[in-house]
Design a protein around this nucleic acid. Structure first.
Length: 846
RNA sequence: GCCCUCGUGGUGAAAUUGGUAGACACAAAGGACUUAAAAUCCUUGCCGCUUGCGGAGUGCCAGUUCGAGUCUGGCCGAGGGCACCA
């Protein structure tokens, strides 16, 4: 028998699917739909193993649903705007468009070699004017709805390159190219009012029952709803400032108040703009960076003002007012009251400036003389040292009660707050969707008229100018709107905008006039299963949820709110890392090993390689494996099989060469047993019925069904091995049982989502007519006899085979006679027995 | 720093969701077949004494329960996110 020639057979089926447009779908109201979507890739040039994993998981689901009779929409596109194109273009003196389009072509070819069941006719690319003109229309629609506005906000500014840097381009506070210390700079930028939807985005999470719990928790914390109180602190004897408003979630610690801290962007900072010391303090703060992490990690520093704030619950207590680097203007009122004993940031600050640390909460198991020493106490307990608040239980009782008192005294008001900030969408870059706005000579905002859309990116661009590239294209910038000379907005949109509605566009990607077609949206949306990396758990998914709501607002034509009914987040693909003696990363292609433990450099076999931990594959660590090479060496089916086999899809998977080769061997073995069976079925003539085959097949399908529904794809591969082991035995005696063909046909169907090329070839050779997902015959799942575990005091001591109808007391009587049990119970008294039907019996003895 | 998730044999893992821990594989060792090798097949999680038997065992420490990998609390370790990477 010939070996399985995957090169020939995979090519044959891929060409067949292409030619016959097998995976093209059109909406059909009479057919149940299933929208299966994987997060679309950034066209970096070559697919990586993460893509292989993502798209294989999705493809298995799409093929499964299709065999079940669903009308499956399974599209693919390109998230093709973004910084890498701009960087590559700068480096190699190319055009970002050409670079991107070449990459798309290359990656499309690679994806096709994986044998994915994709409707390529719906392909979209976000950098194509066909896509972004609709995005510009959507932008203007949302603008008209009042969901988009302009305000000043900070960016990372590289003072040498005179350019805005992304967070990833800031390394240890310095610009990645220039090495200059990065500053915070204020720019006028566009924002989406996502915070208008904070409550809805939060409460609707409860309805997403097919989302991973952890993603919902992450989004919940991100939105950060908190219940607290706004408090007006009176300022002592100042002409200029009467009071300062703070937001707090811990009003119950008000007696521990020892300073009041303001953001450097607080309106009161205007009063200090002539103070040199304040200005140098503000400069110092601007070096902290713009990320929350850098602010949280930075040393707490402050600038002391002459102002004194009065404790509203104790008018004799007056504490200093500072500007401090850890207070954010975006949250609350940009002002916080400091209680060092019960907040770690306040504690660090108080230690630095020798402020009082007054303990007002004690843990339940401490006495009233408890004091905070080395770190803030933020746990539960009882209020102490707080006059009329003493004795209240923290947090449940104390916070509510204090708010009530503050409201009665007209000092503060109960307030709900959200951490979620509005979404800044302006990017000072070339390779993005132009914002369809212009400004007249008085700096008034004008929308670009619809007839002038799309605002196309200029083709000719010099990316090596300093600052925002579009800003230097004078002829492009100028536009006349209703007779007024205007200058275009030169910022482009955040690429997260592109990916916030692409799933809508897939439903009618060919429609030139409309962003999306109502009938198509009504039929296909929501996405039934969305699959992608957990790194998108917050931003991309939240922005998409916002976008559908923003479109939905005041729009009777569009009923959708939640875009993704089901969500699955897959783990990363990892590989060992290698370094040479000089600490340079080495690729797996550069090293070899004879025993699997010690590695050496191929070109210098005497030099030992340092083997590092397995980490997610990345170019910078050189620990990548090229999927195309693997497909060429082992075939798409083997690669698909391996990428699913070793770990559950939501967990990280370790790439291993031995795992890959064993998947390849399995493909060969499975082919060979299939050929045996096809031969038997077509030539041998024994016609007896084999009940074992019936039982095994039905049990296997049942296992596969359960595992498929729960994304336990690695378990499915284990069942495939069981299938091989079983049918390998069955085929040994070369009997053509009457039920062999029917059952093996079913087996080929249920393996086909994972290894579609091999399965289709075998089904073809068997001349199968049936391409439906098999129904499980329940009567073959249950056996008459059942093995029951015998436990003595919860420990397993043996088991017994009984008929399922046997009553509990009968079972117990039988067990008592068993020798293995006798020795445990003969001198003891049975005080209790616990019987779990069909599973175990636990005998408690004394 | 803050938030989230995950820790099961030498390795990847499975476990009907509180009921036989280690299915299915990978690796290694031993054995069978062979002139030899390859391939194939069989055995092996750990500790103890004799095939049998007994004991411990799911990161660590407590707890709930007849019974805990699974539930609760604390600790340790690894990974992800932190708003301009996508």
């Amino acid at each position: 028998m010939s070996r399985y020639n995957f090169k020939l057979i995979e090519k044959k089926w891929q060409d067949y699917w292409d030619k016959n447009n097998t995976y093209k779908v059109i909406s059909n109201p009479n057919k149940r739909k299933f929208y299966c979507l994987e997060m679309f890739p950034y066209p970096s040039g070559r697919i990586h193993m993460g893509h292989v994993r993502n798209y294989t998981i999705g493809d298995v689901l799409a093929r499964y649903k299709s065999l079940q009779g669903f009308n499956v929409l399974h599209p693919m596109g390109w998230d093709s705007f973004g910084m890498p194109a701009e960087n590559a273009a700068k480096q190699n003196n190319l055009n970002p468009k050409d670079w991107t389009e070449e990459n798309i072509n290359a990656m499309k070819n690679q994806l096709k070699k994986l044998g994915l069941s994709i409707d390529w006719e719906r392909e979209i690319s976000t950098c194509s004017p066909n896509y972004y003109k609709h995005q510009q229309k959507l932008f203007l629609e949302l603008y008209d709805k009042g969901l988009i506005y302009r305000k000043e906000s900070y960016v990372n500014w590289d003072p040498i390159d005179k350019t805005v840097l992304a967070n990833e381009q800031v390394i240890n506070g310095k610009g990645w190219r220039s090495g200059a210390v990065v500053e915070r700079k204020k720019l006028n930028q566009w924002f989406f009012r996502i915070s208008n939807f904070a409550e809805e985005l939060l409460s609707d999470l409860d309805n997403l029952d097919q989302w991973p719990e952890k993603v919902k928790i992450m989004q919940k914390n991100w939105i950060g709803k908190s219940f607290g109180c706004e408090i007006d602190f009176k300022i002592d004897g100042s002409e200029k400032v009467k009071s300062i408003k703070c937001y707090t979630t811990r009003p119950d610690t008000l007696f521990g108040f020892s300073f009041l801290a303001l953001s450097v962007d607080h309106p009161l900072s205007k009063l200090y703009e002539k103070d040199k010391n304040f200005l140098s303090f503000r400069d110092e703060c601007s070096k902290t960076g713009t990320t929350e992490e850098s602010i949280a990690q930075a040393e707490k520093i402050g600038f002391k003002t002459e102002l004194l704030a009065i404790n509203p619950l104790n008018e004799n207590e007056k504490v200093p007012v500072y500007f401090a680097n850890f207070v954010l203007m975006d949250y609350g009122f940009g002002a916080v009251f400091g209680c060092p004993a019960h907040d770690q940031r306040d504690f660090d600050f108080a230690k630095k400036y020798n402020l009082e640390i007054k303990t007002v909460v004690k843990p339940f198991d401490e006495t009233d003389s408890f004091t905070v020493n080395d770190e803030a106490y933020t746990g539960s307990g009882t209020i102490i040292n707080s006059d009329f608040l003493n004795g209240l239980k923290v947090p449940d009782e104390s916070i509510a009660k204090t708010i009530q008192i503050l409201e009665e005294k007209k000092i503060g008001n109960k307030k709900t707050n959200y951490r979620l900030k509005d979404w800044g969408v302006s990017r000072q870059r070339y390779w993005g969707c132009p914002i369809p706005i212009a400004y007249d000579e008085k700096n008034q905002i004008h929308k670009i008229p619809e007839k002038d859309l799309p605002v196309l990116l200029p083709d000719q661009i010099n990316l090596n100018t300093k600052g925002n590239p579009l800003d230097s294209v004078d002829q492009w910038k100028k536009i006349n709107i209703n007779g007024k000379n205007c200058i275009r907005e030169t910022d482009t949109l955040d690429t997260f905008v592109d990916s916030s509605w692409y799933f809508l566009r897939f439903c009618s990607s060919k429609d030139n006039d409309n962003s999306f077609n109502k009938n198509e949206i009504d039929y296909w949306m929501p996405v039934d299963q969305y699959i992608g990396g957990v790194e998108h758990a917050i931003l991309h998914l939240l922005y998409s949820r916002f976008f559908t709501r923003a479109i939905n607002l005041n729009n009777k034509e569009f009923e959708l709110k939640e875009p993704f009914k089901g969500l699955f987040t897959q783990g990363m693909v990892c590989h060992q890392t290698y370094k040479d003696q000089n600490d340079n990363w080495l690729s797996p292609d550069d090293v070899f090993s004879n025993n699997g433990n010690d590695y050496f450099i191929k070109t210098k076999p005497s030099e030992k390689v340092m083997v590092g931990p397995s980490e997610s594959m990345s170019k910078s660590k050189k620990n990548t494996i090229d999927p195309e090479k693997m497909i060429e060496a082992y075939g798409a089916d083997a690669v698909r099989l391996f990428i699913l086999s070793d770990s559950p899809p939501e967990k990280d998977i370790q790439w291993s060469e031995t795992g890959m080769t064993s998947a390849y061997k399995f493909i060969q073995k499975f082919w060979s047993v299939s050929q045996n069976i096809i031969e038997i079925v077509n030539t041998e003539s024994d016609k007896s019925i084999n009940n074992e085959i019936e039982i095994f097949t039905n049990q296997s399908i049942e296992k596969i069904n359960t595992a498929l529904e729960k994304f336990r794809y690695n378990v499915i591969i284990a069942v495939f091995h069981e299938i091989f082991n079983f049918f390998n035995k069955v085929s040994e005696n070369r009997k053509n049982y009457q039920n062999l063909k029917e059952n093996y046909n079913k087996i080929l169907i249920v393996v086909s989502p994972v290894i579609p090329h091999l399965a289709n070839e075998c089904l073809n050779l068997m001349a199968s007519k049936n391409f439906e997902w098999p129904k499980v015959k329940k009567e073959f799942l249950e056996k008459e006899e059942k093995e029951i575990v015998i436990q003595i005091n919860g420990k397993k001591r043996g088991n017994i085979l009984i008929n399922k109808k046997t009553e509990e007391n009968e079972i117990l009587a039988k067990i008592k006679e068993l020798d293995i049990i006798q020795k445990y119970i003969k001198d003891k008294k049975i005080s209790k027995t616990i019987y779990v039907k069909d599973r175990l019996i636990n005998i408690i003895i004394k």
